[in-house]
C-alpha cells in the first residue's frame, strides 16, 4: 500500500549509498579508509553475532581468530611470497581449521566456563604472536604486506578500489549471515541459544551444531583479518588483544546482538564516533564503558533490537484496535 520505506527498499537504498559513497568522497582518502576499516570490523562482528547472538555462545577468542586471519595473509604474502588471493583463501582455511580444533575442545565447556576458556585462548594467541619473533615479527609486527594482486584489469592501489573490494566481501558476509539465520540451520542455532536441554530433546545434536556455528563464526573473523592485513599493510600483536575483542563485543551489543542489522549499525556508529573523539582516544572508554553497561541493563537487544520492539508494540497496539472491531465474531474455543 505505497509503503516506500519497507525493508527491501531500505536495503537497496543502503547498498546504493555504499556504492556511490566513494564518488562523494573521491578525494578524501581518510574518510574512505575509515569506512573501509569499519566494513572490515563489521564482517568480523557478523561472525561474532552468529555464534553469540544466534547460537548463544559468547566466545572471547574472536580477536584471536581475526589475528590468525591477518597474520596468515601477512606471513604467506611477505615470507611465503604467495599471491594475495591464494593467501586470503588459505587464511580463511587456516582460521577455520584452528577454530575447528579449538572449538572441539572449548565447546566441551559451557556458559561461563566457555567465556573464560575462550578469553584465555584468545590471550594465548596474543602471547604466541607477541613472543614468536621468528614467524610473526613479535612486538615489531609485520610490515610491507603487499596490496592485493590485480584481477585482470582491476587493480587495488587506490583507496577507492580497496573500498569496493571490502564492500564486496561485506555484502557477501551479510548475505551469508542472512541466509543462515533464515534457514533451518539458523532455527537450530536459535533453539540452542534458547535452551540447550530443550534443543536436545528435539533431536538436535547440540555439540555438532555449536561446532559448525563456531567454525562459521571464526571464518568471518579470519576473512576480516585477512582483509585488514591487506588494507593496513602493517599488523602488530595488538590485533589479537583483548581490547580488540571487547571492541567487537561493544559494537555488537550497542548495534543489537542477535539481530541481522545490529553488527552493521553498531560497528559503523562506533567507528565514526571514535573518529570524532579521536583527540581523546585514551579516554574513549570513559564514555563507551558506561554505555555498554547501560545498554545491557536497559536495552539488552541494542539499537536495532529496541527499534524492532517499538515497532512490534506499535503493531500489536494497532492489531488490538482491529480486534476490538471484530469482537462480536465468536472466537474459536482453545479447548478440544
Amino acid at each position: 500500500m505505497g509503503k516506500i520505506f519497507n525493508q527491501r527498499n531500505i536495503i537497496i537504498l543502503l547498498i546504493l549509498f555504499a556504492l556511490v559513497f566513494p564518488l562523494i568522497y573521491a578525494d578524501n582518502r581518510y574518510v574512505l579508509h575509515v569506512m573501509t576499516i569499519g566494513f572490515i570490523f563489521t564482517i568480523s562482528v557478523y561472525g561474532m553475532n552468529i555464534l553469540a547472538g544466534y547460537t548463544g555462545q559468547l566466545s572471547l577468542a574472536h580477536a584471536g581468530f581475526f589475528a590468525i586471519g591477518a597474520y596468515s595473509v601477512g606471513i604467506l604474502t611477505t615470507q611465503g611470497g604467495l599471491n594475495f588471493w591464494l593467501a586470503l583463501l588459505l587464511a580463511v582455511l587456516i582460521t577455520c581449521a584452528t577454530g575447528f580444533v579449538l572449538g572441539l575442545i572449548a565447546l566441551r565447556t559451557k556458559t561461563h566456563f566457555f567465556a573464560i576458556y575462550t578469553l584465555i585462548v584468545g590471550y594465548l594467541i596474543y602471547l604466541l604472536i607477541d613472543k614468536w619473533d621468528g614467524l610473526t615479527g613479535g612486538i615489531r609486527g609485520l610490515i610491507g604486506i603487499p596490496i592485493p594482486d590485480p584481477i585482470g584489469p582491476i587493480t587495488f592501489e587506490s583507496a577507492t578500489s580497496m573500498y569496493y573490494l571490502v564492500l564486496f566481501f561485506l555484502l557477501l558476509a551479510i548475505f551469508v549471515a542472512v541466509r543462515i539465520v533464515h534457514s533451518l540451520t539458523g532455527r537450530t542455532y536459535i533453539a540452542i541459544r534458547n535452551s540447550e536441554d530443550l534443543a536436545q530433546t528435539l533431536g538436535i545434536n547440540t555439540t555438532m551444531n555449536k561446532l559448525v556455528s563456531f567454525v562459521i563464526s571464526v571464518a568471518f573473523a579470519g576473512l576480516a583479518g585477512g582483509l585488514y592485513a591487506a588494507l593496513t599493510r602493517f599488523i602488530g600483536p595488538d590485533v589479537a588483544s583483548t581490547h580488540m575483542v571487547f571492541n567487537f563485543l561493544m559494537y555488537l551489543i550497542v548495534g543489537g546482538i542477535g539481530t541481522l542489522s545490529g553488527p552493521l549499525v553498531g560497528t559503523m556508529l562506533f567507528i565514526w564516533f571514535e573518529q570524532f573523539l579521536k583527540s581523546y582516544q585514551e579516554y574513549h572508554m570513559l564514555i563507551f564503558g558506561p554505555i555498554l553497561v547501560f545498554m545491557v541493563i536497559f536495552f539488552p537487544s541494542g539499537i536495532t533490537g529496541g527499534f524492532y520492539k517499538l515497532k512490534m508494540k506499535f503493531q500489536s497496539a494497532k492489531n488490538q484496535k482491529n480486534v476490538r472491531h471484530i469482537k462480536s465474531i465468536p472466537v474459536k474455543s482453545t479447548k478440544e
Binding site: L184, L202, G203, I204
Partner: peptide, 25 residues
C-alpha cells in the same frame, strides 16, 4: 524447529538455499 530432526538440510543448503532446504522448510 520441532520437526528439524526429520530434515537433512545442512549449512551448505542454507547458504545456497538449495531445493532440499526449500522443500524441508
Amino acid at each position: 524447529v520441532g520437526h528439524r530432526l526429520r530434515t537433512k538440510s545442512k549449512l551448505y543448503d542454507a547458504i545456497f538455499r538449495t531445493r532440499r532446504e526449500k522443500q524441508e522448510e
